[in-house]
């Protein structure tokens, strides 16, 4: 697996991946839908698969002494590393946000702990819809991305609107500082659990689909 990850990072990684990590600093914009910063990383994962198709990544990988399932696993691990890396950079950006503008976010969720929990769920939605679609037919990368992006934007719309109209979200989760820490931490933990669980289900399904595919 270490060799496959090395292949992912040295050959498959799209140049936008490290570039979009920096976009996590969009969290210092005073009023902004911060989920958009995380959406960029899903775009970058899509680019990896798209350029993989143009570069015959699957044909290359199949020639290596690896199992088909490990090719899928390596891609999932790469995506997970990128998602976690962006969330980690975003933590620094969120801290900076609190220092620079301590007034909250008028557009959507504040850059707080709950936002990270909800972003984990956003990544889980993306991972499931995109990868299950992609591994159904690795030659069709665009359609799964359109579907996953549509789902991600619906999700963003729902959580951002909820931050304005849903009392629990508005009054407890969408607040700055250390207020309602228990609620916010619960959302973070639930988000991580969902991200891990849904991504593992997506991995299992993707492996089954990829094993069946004629390449």
């Amino acid at each position: 697996m270490r060799n496959l990850i090395n292949k992912e990072l040295k050959l498959a990684l799209h140049p936008t991946a490290p570039l979009f990590l920096v976009l996590a600093f969009m969290l210092i914009i005073p009023n902004y839908p911060y989920y958009v910063a995380f959406f960029y990383m899903t775009l970058s994962i899509f680019f990896i698969c798209l350029s993989g198709r143009e570069n015959n990544d699957i044909s290359y990988s199949l020639l290596l002494p690896v199992r088909k399932r490990d090719i899928v696993k390596a891609r999932f691990i790469t995506a997970a590393i990128l998602e976690l890396a962006q969330l980690t950079v975003a933590v620094a950006a969120a801290v900076l946000n609190h220092r620079l503008n301590n007034t909250g976010n008028d557009v959507g969720m504040d850059a707080n702990i709950a936002l990270f929990g909800l972003s984990f769920v956003m990544f889980a939605v993306f991972n499931y819809i995109f990868f299950v679609g992609y591994y159904r037919n690795v030659n069709k990368v665009g359609a799964p991305f359109v579907k996953s992006s549509a789902a991600v934007f619906v999700y963003i719309a729902v959580v951002e609107v909820s931050a304005h109209i849903c009392p629990f979200m508005r009054d407890k989760l969408d607040t700055i500082g250390e207020e309602y820490l228990t609620e916010k931490l619960s959302v973070l933990i639930a988000g991580i659990v969902l991200w891990v669980g849904i991504t593992l289900i997506a991995l299992k399904k993707s492996i089954a689909l990829f094993e069946k595919e004629d390449l």
């Binding site: 050959l11 570069n55 015959n56 990544d57 044909s59 290359y60 020639l63």
Partner: peptide, 12 residues
């Protein structure tokens, strides 16, 4: 196993 030309990662 070689299947035709090396058309993978053509810009690396």
């Amino acid at each position: 196993f070689v299947s035709g030309a090396a058309n993978y990662y053509i810009n690396k």
